[in-house]
C-alpha cells in the first residue's frame, strides 16, 4: 500500500526549476533512497513533502494507517503529526542536555502526555547508546554524538514517516552502524517508512528497498538497486548514478523487449 503518492510535483525558485514534474509513489514500510548530485532537488522534495516550502504546481498525498490521505497543499499539520525530519544540516540546542533536546521535540507534538514522552526518550537514549551522557549539556558532545541525539529526537514521537537527510554524515563507523541498524529495524520490524538521502552508495545498497535518482530536478530513474543495475547494465549502482548524473549516457536495455538503445559514449566498469 502506498504511503506517499507524488503527482507532477514542481518547485520553481525564481528562474531556477528545483524540481521538475516529479511523480512517484512510496510504499508503506519501505526504505526509499533519494540519490542525486548536489542541487538535484532531493532536499527540495523532502521540504515539499514536510511542508517547509509550497509547491509551484502538482501535489502529493500522504496516507497513514487509518488516517488520511492528506494533501501537502492543505493538510500539512496533519502530515507533520506522524512524520519527522532530520535535515542534512541540523544541530542540537547546545544549552540543553541530550535528554532535554529529545524531550523538547516530544513536547512540541503537544497531544502526548509528558510521561509517555519521557518513556520514549529513555528508550531512545538506550537505543542510540547515550546512556550515561543523557544529562550532559550537548555543547560538550562530539559531532557524532550530536548526530545520535538528532536521530533520537527525530524518532521521539514514533512517527510513521521519517525523512532522513544524510543521517550518517559526520558519525564514526560504529555510530553509523548503529544508525543503519536502527533504520533497518524501523522499516522491517516497526513498519516505518523511511525516505533517506545519502551520498554513500553502500548505504543505499544496504538499506534501501528502492532508489530514486534525481538529476537537475527530474526523476531520472527509479527502482531497486538491482533493478537499476540491470536496467542500465551496470555491475554497480554507482556506475548507474555517475552515468546518469554526468550525462555521459548509459546503456539502456528494455528488459522486456531486450532492445538496445545504443547511445553509449563511455562505459565504466568495476569488477
Amino acid at each position: 500500500m502506498n504511503i506517499i503518492e507524488i503527482e507532477n510535483l514542481t518547485k520553481r525558485f525564481k528562474d531556477n526549476v528545483a524540481l521538475d514534474n516529479v511523480s512517484l509513489t512510496i510504499q508503506r514500510g519501505e526504505v526509499f533512497g533519494l540519490l542525486g548530485p548536489n542541487g538535484a532537488g532531493k532536499t527540495t522534495l523532502i521540504r515539499l513533502l514536510i511542508g517547509l516550502i509550497k509547491p509551484t504546481s502538482g501535489t502529493a498525498r500522504i496516507q497513514y494507517n487509518g488516517l488520511g490521505p492528506f494533501d501537502i497543499n492543505k493538510d500539512i499539520m496533519e502530515i507533520r503529526k506522524k512524520a519527522s525530519l532530520l535535515p542534512q544540516e541540523a544541530d542540537v540546542y547546545e544549552n540543553l542536555t541530550a535528554k532535554e533536546n529529545i524531550m523538547y521535540y516530544g513536547q512540541i507534538y503537544g497531544n502526548v502526555p509528558n510521561g509517555e514522552v519521557r518513556r520514549r526518550t529513555e528508550e531512545l537514549i538506550d537505543m542510540i547508546g547515550l546512556r550515561g551522557r543523557e544529562n550532559d549539556i550537548t555543547k560538550e558532545f562530539s559531532g557524532g554524538m550530536k548526530r545520535k541525539v538528532l536521530v533520537a529526537r527525530a524518532l521521539v514521537m514514533d512517527p510513521d514517516l521519517i525523512f532522513l537527510d544524510e543521517p550518517t554524515t559526520g558519525i564514526d563507523i560504529l555510530g553509523a552502524r548503529t544508525v543503519r541498524n536502527l533504520i533497518k529495524r524501523l522499516a522491517k520490524e516497526l513498519n516505518k517508512t523511511v525516505i533517506l538521502t545519502t551520498h554513500d552508495l553502500s548505504e543505499v545498497e544496504e538499506l534501501c528497498d528502492r532508489v530514486g535518482i534525481l538529476v537537475k530536478g527530474k526523476l531520472a530513474a527509479i527502482g531497486s538497486p538491482d533493478e537499476l543495475e540491470q536496467q542500465f547494465t551496470r555491475a554497480h549502482l554507482e556506475d548507474v548514478f555517475i552515468g546518469l548524473t554526468t550525462g555521459e549516457g548509459v546503456l539502456e536495455e528494455d528488459l522486456t523487449t531486450k532492445k538496445r538503445r545504443g547511445f553509449i559514449s563511455r562505459i565504466l566498469r568495476r569488477r
Binding site: 541540523a90 512540541i108 507534538y109
Partner: peptide, 12 residues
C-alpha cells in the same frame, strides 16, 4: 546554528 529547519518541520 542550524536548528531552525527541524523546528519549522514540527506540527506547530
Amino acid at each position: 546554528k542550524k536548528t531552525m529547519e527541524s523546528l519549522l518541520a514540527l506540527p506547530i
